Amino acid sequence: MFEIFQYGFMQNAFIAAVLVSVACGIVGTYVVVKKVVSISGAISHAAFGGIGLGYLVGINPIVAAIPFSILSAISIGLINERVKISEDTAIGILWSVGMGLGVIFINLSPQYAPDLFSYLFGNILTVPRSDLILMLILDLIILFIVFLFYREFMAISFDEEFSKVVGVPAESMYILLLCLVALSVVVLIKVVGVILVIALLSIPAAINIQYTNNIKKIMIFSVILGIFLNILGLWLSFIFDLASGATIVLVLGITFAISTLLKKYW
């Protein structure tokens, strides 16, 4: 198994697997506990608009996706809190508009988009060193914000109404949490793509939440489990010549199914 890591692109892929596991383990815990998985999906698809904008203006699509994703997160947070439409309607609007903008921007772009497929479905084997640095920076930002507002995030995740009563700025914290989801989406895009981001963001935490209700333990175990399953999926995709992002997601899904059965019958 370990001989495959003698290749430079596999070393980059290994580092990327570790970095994305940090983001999905920490933020994914809040996503599952707060039950905002569908909102995370909307933000990830809206991020495609930023990828298309990157192609249009000639910059790194991942860099362009950062402000686009954050703006989408803030928009859906404000719509959910202040506009009198249902949450699923807001999700559907953001989901479709973001994807639509991405397609339009790419059509308007004078250059060909050779790696567009990897942004949709991911390809961890093509992650360059520059994207690894960006992933690391985003991970550090996520860790810093969670460390700073850990109690506030925990309060709104379990009981938002009570958190308002005790003085927690629930709306601001909720929007900030969605911004963390947006940053996590950007970290995950090159690994599993826009389409499959939800799986990596939710499955590790969903597995661990079956065994403990302690937020810190869920985060730690989700990061560790994410690293193991991402590397396993990476190795299987390399051995059997399969799409890396899809293989990683299938490994996660199978592990969740096995964990659920074990929890139910043991």
Rank of each mutant, 00 (worst) to 15 (best):
T247I: 10
G122N: 01
R129N: 11
I91D: 10
I15T: 14
K217L: 11
L250R: 04
T89K: 02
T255V: 09
I215H: 06
Y211C: 00
I59W: 05
S130T: 15
G41A: 11
S118M: 07
L229T: 05
L78A: 14
V194S: 09
L125N: 14
S75C: 13
M135V: 14
A199I: 04
M219A: 11
A47K: 06
L178V: 04
G58F: 01
V57M: 00
A16L: 03
N107A: 11
F5M: 04
K84D: 13
S118T: 15
I141V: 14
L234C: 02
S184E: 10
L176K: 03
V22S: 04
A246P: 07
S184Y: 03
I70Y: 03
L201Q: 03
V249F: 12
G122Q: 03
F158E: 12
L101H: 01
K264Y: 04
Q111V: 12
L134V: 13
I74Y: 10
L101S: 09
G28Q: 01
F2H: 11
A182P: 04
T212V: 01
F238Q: 13
I209P: 02
N230Y: 08
Y7F: 15
V20L: 05
G58D: 04
Q6N: 14
F68A: 09
V223T: 09
E81K: 12
S202R: 01
G98R: 02
A182V: 06
F256A: 07
I156V: 13
C179K: 02
G54N: 11
I76D: 10
K35V: 06
A246M: 12
M135E: 15
A90W: 08
F105Q: 11
I43N: 05
